[in-house]
């Protein structure tokens, strides 16, 4: 292939500092430009579906919590709702709000984590450190409410396993109030830093059509202009009772993905 096209193959992974999870990418590059990509996944496949078949409905939330460590509310959230749906169980109002609260708290921590890692990958370690510094109060709140920093084990078919104590509320409020200023600061820093813009604008563009064709979801699709947020369009728990904006952007490049997450 060498004579005709000038592509070189760069293997990335399965173990590479860029990735938190083992995956294998074969990049076909021409100079510094990626022209083709082959993906090999499955380094994380642990057969959770099969394992779950052996468990009782009450054990499954603990197992599915371990699908993903960064999003350890979303999978049990879905699992308990499926179980409740099958069993026709009504969930108390307060439990719905607690679930929503946990889900949103996790969103904050996950987006800060994303921002930090994005900075880290761009060689901007200060952004990483700062984002993760301000992520700690979120984890503290989790620890206060659920007893663990990650893998909260809060979800249970029919409700939640622990209530939020009245004594804990002022502390949690104080921790979360302290987040507002740093978050605004991040919005300013990321959206205005010229070097960050130079690195992320018009890079990795996922157009609206491609996004629909490939079935991308979540913040990635919102960055490409798909106005879809399951919290708004298909509300569960208490999402129909709380107010929030769904942010979509048009370009679908890395910069827009950051905008959507902030």
């Amino acid at each position: 292939m060498a004579a005709k096209s000038r592509t070189t193959i760069i293997p990335i992974g399965p173990y590479h500092p860029l990735q938190e999870e083992p995956e294998f990418f074969k990049l076909h590059v021409e100079g510094e430009k990626v022209v083709k990509l082959e993906i090999e996944i499955g380094y994380n496949h642990r057969g959770i579906e099969k394992l779950a078949e052996d468990l009782t409905y009450d054990q499954v939330p603990f197992l599915v919590e371990r699908i993903c460590g960064i999003c350890s509310t979303s999978h049990p959230f879905a699992a308990v709702q499926a179980i409740e749906d099958v069993g026709g169980v009504d969930v108390p109002e307060r439990a719905k709000y607690i679930r929503t609260f946990l889900g949103e708290l996790e969103r904050i921590h996950s987006h800060l984590l994303w921002l930090g890692l994005a900075g880290h990958f761009l060689g901007f370690n200060t952004l990483w450190m700062w984002a993760w510094k301000h992520r700690e109060p979120v984890l503290d709140t989790f620890e206060l409410i659920t007893g663990n920093r990650n893998h909260y084990a809060m979800f249970k078919p029919g409700g939640v396993r622990r209530d939020i104590m009245d004594e804990d509320i002022p502390t949690a409020m104080r921790l979360l109030d302290g987040l507002v200023r740093p978050l605004n600061m991040f919005i300013k820093v990321v959206l205005q830093d010229p070097v960050l813009q130079a690195r992320t604008k018009n890079v990795g563009v996922l157009s609206y059509d491609d996004c629909v064709e490939l079935g991308a979801l979540g913040p990635t699709s919102r960055a490409s202009g798909v106005p879809w947020d399951v919290r708004r369009d298909h509300p569960y728990a208490a999402y129909d009772k709380v107010d929030f904006n769904v942010i979509t952007t048009e370009n679908g490049d890395v910069f827009d993905k950051a905008v959507v997450r902030l």
Partner: peptide
């Protein structure tokens, strides 16, 4: 070095 992100080589 601590207040900037890495530039691409073409940049």
């Amino acid at each position: 070095r601590n207040t900037n992100a890495r530039l691409r080589i073409d940049q």
